[in-house]
Structure formats: structure tokens, C-alpha cells
């Protein structure tokens, strides 16, 4: 019963977001961004609502949703740590730091820790290549990431 209420709430709020954005030119990405911003992920039950509002097939919406790395079909952890895995960061020992992060947090890439504290994601370039290695914690940019900072982050996300 409770589940059903939550689901109805999600649908009602999703329809509001879709209605706000659907008149834009090429509205699908802005709508998916809007849904993810609202719920922290794109609830799968909202995809048919999007298809219906834009008069496109559910397959088309599913195709777009799954094509882009950013969109999630389930909630992330309370914190999201993105570590750059691209060349400029590799040149400054990024690979070793990335492995260290995975060890410290006890998660693999794209995974959320069992306590729900943190999701670890790779990112390919944050445009911070002159202060590599770079990372982003909950939208905050971090340059010249080192072991000490990683240790601090690992402690901080568990608080």
C-alpha cells in the first residue's frame, strides 16, 4: 500500500516536470535531466509517461535513457565520488589513485557501498587537466588529488 502511494507521488511529480519542459525544442534530454535532478535517478515507471507526453515510442525513450552514461535507473549513494580516468590524470598517477579509492571505499566502479554511503564512478575528463589527478565529490571539484585527500574523503562520506 505504502509502495503504491510512493509510486503515485512519483508519477504526479514526474508529470509536472514533463509538462514544464515538453514545449522546448528537443525536450527529451532536458526532461530526463529534470527527472534525475528531482528524484536522484530516473524512476523506470516515469519513462512511459515521458513517451506518452512526447508522442514517441517507449522504445525510443528507453534507447535514449540507456545511451547516456549520466542517467541512473536506481538511486545513487548519499555521496557520489567521480574520479577522472582519462590520459592527463593517468600521466599523474591517476590509475593508482583510482585503485586506491576503490579499495578505501570498498566498492568497484559504478557501484554503491553496502551502507549506501557512496557511489564510485569513473569520469572521462573534468577539464582540470593542468591540476591532475582530478575528481569530483558531490559536484565539488578537486584538483591534485592525493592519498591523504582520498583518505579524508573516505572518512567524510561515512560520517
Amino acid at each position: 500500500m505504502e509502495m503504491q502511494t510512493a509510486s503515485t507521488d512519483i508519477a504526479a511529480r514526474a508529470i509536472e516536470i514533463i509538462d514544464q519542459l515538453k514545449s522546448a525544442e528537443g525536450p527529451l534530454l532536458p526532461i530526463l535531466h529534470g527527472l534525475q535532478e528531482e528524484f536522484g535517478y530516473v524512476p523506470p515507471e516515469t519513462l512511459p509517461l515521458v513517451a506518452n507526453a512526447l508522442n514517441i515510442s517507449r522504445a525510443e525513450v528507453h534507447g535514449v535513457f540507456t545511451f547516456y552514461h549520466d542517467y541512473r535507473d536506481h538511486p545513487a549513494g548519499r555521496h557520489v565520488l567521480k574520479i577522472c580516468r582519462a590520459e592527463a590524470c593517468q600521466s599523474m598517477g591517476g590509475d593508482r589513485l583510482a585503485e586506491r579509492a576503490s579499495e578505501l571505499l570498498g566498492v568497484n566502479w559504478h557501484e554503491t557501498s553496502a551502507d549506501g554511503a557512496v557511489t564510485l564512478e569513473p569520469v572521462y575528463c573534468l577539464g582540470l587537466c593542468a591540476c591532475a589527478p582530478a575528481a569530483m565529490l558531490d559536484g565539488e571539484v578537486i584538483g591534485r588529488l592525493d592519498d591523504e585527500q582520498l583518505q579524508e574523503i573516505a572518512t567524510e562520506v561515512r560520517l
Binding site: 534530454l29 535531466h33 545511451f67 547516456y68 572521462y124
Partner: peptide, 25 residues
């Protein structure tokens, strides 16, 4: 301003246009 969704290939101009139109890149 329109924001992509983490697809490198959308830097290719025609994939970018597809993405702007609301399709896969």
C-alpha cells in the same frame, strides 16, 4: 544552454545535433 549527459561521442557535430534533438548521440 543545453547540457549533455556524459557521452563523449556527442562532441562529434552530427551526434551533437542528434542529442540536441532529443535522440541517442
Amino acid at each position: 544552454v543545453r547540457v549533455g549527459a556524459g557521452a563523449y561521442v556527442c562532441g562529434e557535430e552530427t551526434a551533437l545535433l542528434e542529442s540536441l534533438e532529443g535522440r541517442r548521440g
